[in-house]
């Protein structure tokens, strides 16, 4: 492994404070530079390792950029049809209630084609965790308008900016899910700064605990970037996300359990 290192004397096993979890495989992520997917994957993998969930986790991957997610986390996976992950996860959890079951979906998958599956799984209170990556665009197919694309935002299918009169308004699916009786814990986070990474990780850990207690659906939206789709550098895209996405999709808990 070709590496560059800092001060060599400090690099000793007893001084280790952070290394990639073994739940992440050695496969090189297929994502563009700076894409939040990788960070979200890693946090999820860290929780799976720290909570000792490898042997009980069954993940459901979506259609979209993260379609190959099953190549990156060393757990059992099912690859669902576009939008259907919550239905797939419903059956897994119903048939194997002792397992830890989650879906990982993008905005097109969860909030457009999978709207019905999302709403109904959450409304039934399926005891699953849903990780929802919202970057306001269809990344995999090359930057088309998503249900979450902001008003005026340019994409390859809204090249003059999203005109809400003809193209509809951005859908705040997480807000909708929070109103459903079946959802238990609903939060919106991001992974673009160390502080936000910590918060998101905490949220995922909560969802794991709630699933063990059979509390119902936990949905964690991660507002993320798409440097390629937004046509920006990764650093610019994170700044643009703070300035434009966060006002529309404010970070924080939308529904917290009364404990």
């Amino acid at each position: 492994m070709a590496v560059v290192t800092g001060i060599k004397e400090i690099i000793k096993p007893e001084n280790l404070v952070y290394k990639k979890t073994n739940i992440m495989t050695e496969n090189i992520l297929s994502y563009c530079p700076g894409c939040g997917h990788g960070t979200a994957h890693r946090i999820l993998a860290e929780i799976i390792e720290e909570e000792g969930l490898q042997s009980e986790a069954i993940g459901v991957s979506p259609v979209g950029c993260s379609v190959l997610l099953y190549n990156y986390l060393d757990i059992d996976w099912q690859e669902a049809a576009h939008g259907r992950a919550p239905a797939v996860a419903t059956a897994i959890k119903r048939l194997m209630p002792e397992k830890f079951v989650f879906t990982y979906q993008g905005d097109g998958d969860l909030a457009a084609i999978g709207t019905a599956e999302t709403i109904h799984a959450c409304n039934r209170g399926e005891n699953i965790m849903i990780i929802f990556i919202n970057n306001g665009i269809y990344g995999m197919t090359g930057g088309q308008m998503a249900p979450t694309t902001l008003p005026g935002m340019k994409s390859s299918t809204s090249p003059y900016g999203r005109d809400v009169k003809t193209m509809g308004n951005p859908l705040k699916m997480t807000d909708i899910v929070a109103t459903l009786p079946g959802s238990y814990y609903v939060t919106r986070q991001s992974v673009h700064t160390p502080a936000n990474v910590k918060k998101t990780k905490k949220a995922i850990r909560k969802a794991v605990r709630y699933q063990k207690l059979d509390k119902g659906t936990c949905l964690i939206e991660i507002v993320s970037n798409c440097p390629s789709g937004w046509k920006m550098t990764p650093v610019q895209s994170n700044k643009w996300m703070e300035e434009n996405m966060f006002p529309y999709y404010p970070l924080g808990d939308l529904k917290t359990p009364v404990e």
Partner: peptide, 18 residues
């Protein structure tokens, strides 16, 4: 050794010692 870099690295390429 704050590990901020490693925490935000999407590709998990950084290991940190302190």
């Amino acid at each position: 050794g704050c590990a901020n870099c490693a925490m935000v690295c999407p590709d998990g390429v950084i290991t940190v010692y302190k």
